Measured scan of single mutants.
Amino acid sequence: MAAAAAAGAGPEMVRGQVFDVGPRYTNLSYIGEGAYGMVCSAYDNVNKVRVAIKKISPFEHQTYCQRTLREIKILLRFRHENIIGINDIIRAPTIEQMKDVYIVQDLMETDLYKLLKTQHLSNDHICYFLYQILRGLKYIHSANVLHRDLKPSNLLLNTTCDLKICDFGLARVADPDHDHTGFLTEYVATRWYRAPEIMLNSKGYTKSIDIWSVGCILAEMLSNRPIFPGKHYLDQLNHILGILGSPSQEDLNCIINLKARNYLLSLPHKNKVPWNRLFPNADSKALDLLDKMLTFNPHKRIEVEQALAHPYLEQYYDPSDEPIAEAPFKFDMELDDLPKEKLKELIFEETARFQPGYRS
C-alpha cells in the first residue's frame, strides 16, 4: 500500500510507478496490472468513496492506442447498470505532455475469474450472474457493438453480487458484411471463450460470437473449470467437437473457408456428449439454455433477447427493466489503419471533457 500523499506533496508512487492523480484522489492501494497499465484503488475526496484507477501508458504502440481509444469512446457513450462506466479521466493539459491516461471507475471487490478459483456457486448465484451478463449484453448488442472478449476476468463483482462487464478494448461495431482481413492475426481474445466460426472463417462476425462466450462462462460457473481449455488453435476446435459432436452437413455448409471445411470433413465422426453427463448436478433449465448458447452453427445460436426470456431466468426476466441503447454506435473511421500519432490526438480530444474549465 502506498503511503497517503500529504496535501501538495506531488504524485504518489505505487510499486515504483508514478500515479499522478492528486489532489482529488489519494490513499492509493495496488490492485493489479494488465498488459499496459496498473490498477489501484484510491480515495475520492470529492465523492467520499474509494474508486478504481487504471493507469494506461499506450502511446508507444499502435495496438494499445487503438484499444484505449475504443474503450474510452464506447464506455463514455454507454450507460447501463451492468456495464462499468467511466467516472473521470485524468491526463496532462497538453498533448505533448500526455504520456499516461488515468481512467477512474467504480471500485468492484472482485471478478468472476477470482471468485470461481475459490468458491463453488449455488444455482441461485449462477442464475443471477447469468441474468446480469445477458442484461448488459442486450444493451451492448442493441448499440450494434460486439464485445468480443467476454470471459470471467472481464466480469466485475461486488459483495452485493452486482455484476458489471468491463474491458471493451477489443470491441467492434457489428459488421457481418465487412471482410476484416487479418482478423485472426489481430484477434487476441482469450482462445477458450472463442466461437468456432472465428477459427473457421475470417469473413465478418456477428453478435452470436458473444453468446458463445457467455455459454462458455455459464459452463464454467457450473463446474469451476473452463469447458474448452484448448492449448492452441486446432486443439481448441477438437475440444469443442469432442463435446458438441461432429457438425451436420448443414452446419458445414455455413463454413465459407474450404480449407477449414475440408479439415472438419477429414475428422472421424464424434457423438455429442449429453450435458447432464458433463454437469450431473446442474439445473435442467440451465443445461437447456447452455445447449442453445453453445450451438456450433452461429445462425442457430440463441440471441440475447431470447436467452433473457428463457425459463431458467424467469424469476428475473423483465423486458421493461432491460434497457437498450438510445442509438446504434458508430465509429467515424476504422481505427485499425491509423498511425499511433493520430490515435493519440483522438484520445486527447475524447478525454477533453474531463479537463478543468472544459467548454463543449
Rank of each mutant, 00 (worst) to 15 (best):
T181N: 12
G34Y: 01
H232A: 08
F168W: 09
L184N: 08
L163T: 02
L28K: 04
S320D: 10
Y312W: 10
C216G: 12
L234F: 04
T118Y: 05
K99T: 13
F348Y: 13
R194N: 05
F228P: 00
S248L: 07
K48H: 13
E341A: 08
Y317Q: 00
D177V: 14
R301T: 07
R359Y: 02
G85I: 12
V173I: 10
S284L: 11
L146H: 04
S202R: 13
R225K: 03
D106H: 10
A3F: 01
A189M: 06
V304I: 12
Y317A: 08
V273Q: 03
Y139T: 10
A5R: 08
Y131G: 01
T94Q: 02
D88F: 05
Y233N: 15
G357N: 05
E220D: 13
N82M: 04
H80M: 00
A174P: 07
F354H: 11
E345C: 01
P152R: 07
K207Y: 11
Q105Y: 15
L121T: 13
R50A: 09
L156G: 11
P11A: 12
G34M: 02
L130Y: 01
K138Y: 10
I140P: 05
V273R: 05
F331Y: 15
H232I: 01
R225L: 15
P226A: 09
A3G: 03
E60N: 13
D251L: 10
K300N: 15
N27T: 09
D210S: 06
I347G: 08
F19E: 09
P226E: 05
M108W: 07
A92V: 13
N144S: 08
L134N: 01
G8S: 02
S57P: 10
T26N: 14
E220H: 10
A3E: 06
G204M: 11
L112G: 09
Y25E: 02
R172I: 03
L134H: 02
Y358N: 11
I31D: 11
R148T: 04
H180G: 10
L150K: 06
P319K: 09
Q17E: 05
N201H: 11
Y205W: 05
A282P: 13
G22E: 12
F19N: 11
N271H: 13
E349G: 06
V304C: 09
L290M: 12
R172A: 03
L146P: 00
A171H: 06
A286W: 01
S153L: 04
Q66I: 04
L134D: 09
R70F: 01
D318C: 01
S223D: 10
I240K: 08
P229Y: 02
Y25Q: 04
P339S: 13
L237I: 04
M98W: 01
R172Y: 03
L267D: 01
G10L: 10
L155G: 01
Q105P: 04
D251T: 09
P268K: 06
S122E: 11
A195H: 01
V46D: 15
R79I: 13
D321E: 13
P226S: 11
G8T: 06
Y263Q: 01
D337T: 06
E334L: 09
K203D: 10
H299I: 07
P311Y: 12
K114F: 11
E322T: 00
G37D: 15
N87P: 01
C40Q: 15
Y316H: 01
N87V: 12
A42C: 07
I243Y: 02
K272C: 09
L134R: 07
Y358C: 11
G204P: 11
W275E: 04
M293T: 01
E71I: 01
H120M: 14
T351Q: 06
Y317S: 10
S284E: 09
F228H: 03
G32Q: 01
R91M: 00
Y312G: 06
A309T: 15
R67T: 12
F279L: 15
P328D: 07
K151H: 05
K203P: 11
K330A: 01
L115P: 00
H269R: 00
E305I: 03
I90H: 04
I86P: 05
N281D: 00
Y102T: 08
D175I: 10
N144R: 04
Y131W: 05
K270S: 09
Q97I: 02
L200N: 08
E60G: 00
D332L: 02
P23L: 11
I209H: 07
L241Q: 00
L75H: 08
L75W: 15
P323Y: 01
P328R: 02
Y113D: 08
L343P: 00
K207V: 06
F354S: 01
S142Y: 05
I198L: 10
W192C: 15
Y187P: 00
N45Y: 13
W192N: 04
M333Q: 10
T159F: 05
P23C: 00
T185D: 12
D210P: 04
A3M: 09
K138T: 02
N47K: 15
Y64A: 14
S57F: 15
E96W: 03
K138N: 15
P339Q: 15
R24V: 07
C254L: 09
N276G: 08
K48W: 13
A195D: 15
I83E: 01
M98R: 06
E33A: 00
K99D: 03
T160D: 02
S29T: 01
T159Q: 09
N281Y: 15
S142D: 01
F183S: 09
P339M: 10
N47D: 14
S57D: 04
S223A: 14
E341P: 12
R353W: 09
R261W: 12
S41Y: 15
Q236F: 04
V173A: 02
P280K: 04
S360E: 14
K272W: 12
P11S: 13
P11D: 08
R15F: 09
A260S: 15
Q132D: 09
K259L: 09
D321N: 13
L294F: 00
P247D: 09
N262C: 02
P226D: 06
N297Q: 10
I31A: 00
G136F: 05
D321V: 14
N87F: 08
Q306I: 06
V145C: 05
V49H: 04
V145L: 13
I243D: 03
D336V: 14
N45C: 13
G8L: 08
P328C: 01
R148K: 08
P356W: 01
I86E: 01
M293S: 02
T159H: 07
L28G: 01
L150S: 12
I126G: 06
I227K: 07
T181I: 12
Q315D: 08
A7I: 01
L76D: 01
I90W: 00
K300C: 05
K164F: 09
E350L: 09
H80V: 06
S213R: 15
R194V: 10
V21N: 04
Y30Q: 03
N281H: 11
E349D: 15
A219H: 03
L134Q: 15
C216I: 08
L75N: 01
L346Y: 09
T63N: 12
I347T: 01
D235H: 09
F348M: 11
G182I: 08
N224M: 10
C166H: 07
M38T: 06
P356S: 13
P23D: 04
T159Y: 07
D179W: 01
R359Q: 11
L287D: 05
I83F: 14
N158G: 06
D111M: 04
I72M: 10
A171S: 14
R15Q: 10
I90P: 01
D179I: 08
A309C: 03
K48M: 15
L290V: 10
I126F: 14
A195R: 09
